Simulated scan of single mutants.
Amino acid sequence: MIYPPVGIRSIAINFPSVIRTNDYWRKNYPDLVAMAEEKSLSKVFSPADSTPSNQFEQVMTPYLKDPFRGTIERRVLGSDESSLTLEYQAAKNAIAAANLSPEEIDLMIVASLWPENILPGNAAFLAGQLGLRGAAWNLDSTCSNAMVALQNATALVRTGEYRNVLVVVSCTYSRFTDENDTLSWFFGDGAGAFVVAPLKPSQGILGSKIVNTSATCGTFYNELTMDAEGKPRMLIRAAKNTNRVLSETAVDYLRECCLGAVAAAGVTLEQIQFFAFNTPTAWYSHLCTQALGIEPERTINLYPYYANIGPMLPIANLYHGAQLGKIHENDLVLVYTVGSVSNAAATVMRWGDVALSTAPATSANLTDVLPKLVLV
């Protein structure tokens, strides 16, 4: 079936004001750093047995000597920031980059990990702030939020139901982790937005493959606790078998989705110019290039500078890939994401004339650190 050309028209990213380096924990939590190998982050990312037993564990091994598991910086919310403040600026910038007005946005899909309220999500609140009059929906697929929202937006524009769909994604993990838990070293915050609209002939989304990740159910979960002031607080926890489940399923999900997406698009992996993997760990990009048999130079690894920003990772990868000149108009691009207890997704697109908003001051200065972002 031949579909009308629809895809990403503009991209914006936005990060909170606080940049937290490893020295923050070395200075404020020296005992925690000294005992890191006995704590949660180490338990999640260590071999399930005494020696590495699969590709995930093999590429992880060089990072085991680092208590921070390859993280260098992470962006976290300041006292006056929230998922809504991050989303608002990203959404506003994406609309402006697309040279559109709020009145021209027919639909906004919002995927917040997590929203400011348990229910409802951020969509209606954000629509009011932006002055939108069209529909505003909430969506959830954890770390695959961006790709699932992209598939939905593309389908709706193709049918003619909507013309300009704004997708807004945020991740605010710092609200759900404690500084004195080493799992907090692994997480960062951020927001991104992109406009999905008709493009030039042959450009846009060519094929996708999405599968559920039910095998990861029970790995990461949320626990309702009480803080020091006796107020309820939700925290992210990891089950005892999380390391085994993640390492044993990673390559299978990757191959099934990526090979399925290129087949649906009628292309091959060799024809893809740029791969945007969601890099939830420092070694994940290496795992992907090794498992798919592609050259490391065809992707980038943002993890050391943003940490795990969940559903924001594919948006940041695409933004910086284009910003650094690694993606050009009409290039074939493959995006892959995997979310625990949700979906793994891959999408192949032919890159259009995508407008990029100005990068925020708290975004990594990747021009200076690019050599470190290519795994060899």
Rank of each mutant, 00 (worst) to 15 (best):
V169L: 00
G134M: 03
I118D: 08
F125L: 11
L130W: 14
A124C: 11
G160N: 06
F187W: 06
G160A: 06
R158K: 14
R175P: 01
P115W: 04
E116Q: 14
V148I: 15
V168Q: 05
V157I: 14
F176A: 10
P120V: 15
G188S: 13
L132P: 01
Q151S: 14
V167S: 13
I109R: 08
A124N: 12
D140L: 01
I109Q: 01
L130T: 13
S101K: 15
I105F: 03
S144C: 12
S141M: 06
L100M: 04
F187Q: 04
W114Q: 07
P102K: 11
M108D: 02
L107S: 01
Q129M: 10
N122E: 10
Y173D: 09
A155E: 13
A149D: 12
E161N: 04
T172I: 15
R158G: 10
V169R: 00
A123T: 07
N117F: 10
N138S: 14
V157L: 11
L119C: 07
A123D: 05
L132V: 07
L139K: 10
R163G: 06
D189A: 10
A96H: 10
A153R: 11
E103D: 15
T172H: 05
A136L: 04
A127F: 02
A123N: 13
G134Q: 09
S174D: 07
D181M: 01
A111P: 03
I109S: 08
T182Y: 01
T172F: 10
L130P: 05
A97C: 12
M108C: 04
N99R: 15
G131V: 08
F176E: 00
L139P: 00
W114I: 05
D181V: 00
V165L: 08
N138T: 09
A98Q: 00
S184D: 14
G131D: 10
W114N: 07
T182A: 03
W185N: 07
Y162K: 06
A123E: 11
S141V: 08
P115D: 05
A98S: 05
S144F: 06
M108T: 09
P115A: 04
A123W: 03
N180L: 01
Y162M: 00
P120H: 08
A135T: 09
N164V: 07
R163L: 10
T154M: 12
T142M: 13
L139V: 14
T142S: 06
N145R: 05
T142H: 02
Q151P: 00
N152A: 14
S184T: 11
N145Y: 13
L130S: 11
L100Q: 06
F125C: 01
N152I: 14
T177P: 00
L119A: 08
A155T: 15
E179F: 13
W137K: 05
L113S: 11
A97N: 06
A97L: 08
R133V: 11
E103A: 15
P102I: 00
A127D: 07
I118S: 07
Y162E: 07
D178M: 08
G128F: 09
N152K: 13
A153H: 09
A111R: 00
A146W: 03
P102F: 02
P102R: 04
A135K: 10
M108F: 04
W185Y: 07
T142F: 02
R175H: 04
V167I: 14
D178A: 04
T159K: 14
R133A: 12
R163N: 13
W137F: 15
A136Y: 02
